[in-house]
Each structure stands twice: as C-alpha cells, then as structure tokens.
Amino acid sequence: MMPTVTQTLSTMRLTLEQTVLPALPADGAFVQEQVGLMMATLDWLVDVHESEYRYELTENEEYRAFFAAVGRETDAAPPAGDLAALRDQTRALKRAAADLVGDDEPARELLLGLAERQGRREQAWFRMTGFPEDVPGDIATVLAGAR
C-alpha cells in the first residue's frame, strides 16, 4: 500500500517530534522554535490537505450559482480533477463578478452573502494558525454544511 499525502505529512511531523527535536542542543532556542513551527505547519497541512479540492470546488460552484441568480450563465463547466485549472477558473469568475456588480444592489447583496460564506470557509481553513476568531469548525465540517 502506498502512503497517502496525509500519511506522509503525519510521518514527517512525527519524525521531527521524536527524532529531530530531542537531538537539538538545549541552548538552541531558535532552532527549536523553527522545528516547532515546521511541526505546526505539518499539523495544519494534515488538517486541511484532504479538503483542498472540495474547498476550491465549493467556491467555484458558489460563483456559478451567483451568475445563474443574476441571469448570467457561465460557459465552461468546472475542470474535473485539475486543481490549478479550477483555481484559475474561479479567479476569472471572481473578476467577472466584481465587474458585473457595479451599482446593481440585488447582485451586490448576493455577492455579499457569497463573501460571508467564503469568510467562514477561510476561518476554518486557517483555524490552526491561531489567527481567526470565532472559528466555525474544521474545514471538512464547514464544507459538509456548505450544500
């Protein structure tokens, strides 16, 4: 069995904790801090990695729904399985939405709701950094409630 990316990240983190960190000099506060930051980053990656495609797809779907609600269908379907292409398409949808809204108050309200939902997803995505306040939960749970 091949290890998944999540399993590999978890193993890297465990190796840092069990092998590298104890081997560091006691007076090496800076290097200990750096290893701690790497471990925290690996913890974060483990937390979000398996939700990345779903996160991007949810945002793409919400922009498509926005365009449908304002009577402007989008041309292409979301690229299946291609994360970079999906992100590029979503960025294009965001630019088009910003250009479309202008002084259209109903469209602006729809876009505001979309932005609020995206903000909740971003808080969940970055929850392990300690910066977001009032985090709505882990990203997998937030995405599960997005539909």
Score class of each variant (00 low, 15 high):
Ala77Tyr: 01
Ala65Thr: 10
Thr74Tyr: 03
Gly81Asp: 04
Leu9Tyr: 05
Arg72Asn: 08
Asn60Ala: 14
Met1Phe: 04
Leu111His: 08
Phe66Cys: 00
Ala65Arg: 11
Ala65Gln: 12
Thr129Leu: 09
Trp125Asn: 00
Glu52Cys: 05
Pro79Asn: 04
Glu122Asn: 13
Asp134His: 12
Gln7Glu: 15
Asp75Gln: 11
Gly28Cys: 09
Glu59Pro: 00
Asp88Tyr: 04
Pro132Thr: 04
Thr41Met: 10
Lys94Glu: 14
Ala115Trp: 08
Ala80Gly: 08
Thr19Ala: 15
Arg147Asp: 10
Gln89Asn: 03
Glu50Asn: 14
Met38Ala: 14
Leu14Trp: 12
Asp47Leu: 06
Asp47Glu: 10
Ala124Asn: 04
Thr8Ile: 04
Ala77Thr: 13
Val35Gly: 03
Trp125Val: 08
Arg120Asp: 14
Ala146Ile: 01
Ala80Trp: 02
Ala84His: 03
Asp47Cys: 10
Thr4Trp: 03
Pro3Tyr: 01
Leu42Phe: 13
Leu57Cys: 02
Val101Asn: 05
Leu83Val: 08
Glu133Phe: 04
Thr11His: 10
Val31Cys: 09
Ala96Phe: 08
Thr8Gln: 10
Ala92Met: 06
Asp27Lys: 10
Gly36Asn: 10
Phe66Gly: 00
Glu122Leu: 15
Thr4Val: 00
Ala84Gln: 07
Thr4Ala: 02
Arg91Cys: 07
Val31Gln: 06
Asp104Glu: 10
Arg87Met: 02
Leu83Glu: 04
Arg120Gln: 13
Ala29Val: 08
Val135Ser: 06
